[in-house]
């Protein structure tokens, strides 16, 4: 089974939360700012726990923050 791709709307959601900074989000979810940057650039897919923590900070369901694209549906 091929590997899919996980994308996210973290940048957009930060913007709608009064332009929350990457540092503020990082502190709220307990990771470094570098990890937030890597996630926004789709260079890192977070663990399930971190994904839930991020969704909790934004008060949004998980699927609104993250979406999964199977390999065969990549554009």
């Amino acid at each position: 089974m091929g590997k899919g791709r996980i994308s996210n709307n973290i940048r957009k959601l930060r913007f709608f939360r009064d332009e929350m900074t990457q540092q503020q989000l990082a502190e709220k979810v307990g990771v470094t700012r570098q990890t937030i940057i890597a996630m926004e650039q789709d260079k890192y897919s977070p663990s399930l726990e971190l994904a839930f923590r991020i969704a909790h900070v934004f008060g949004a369901p998980l699927e609104e923050v993250f979406s999964y694209h199977p390999e065969d549906s990549q554009a």
Partner: peptide, 11 residues
Amino acid sequence: TQIEDIQDERD
């Protein structure tokens, strides 16, 4: 400089 010396899951 802000020192981010915590090691998170990615690290």
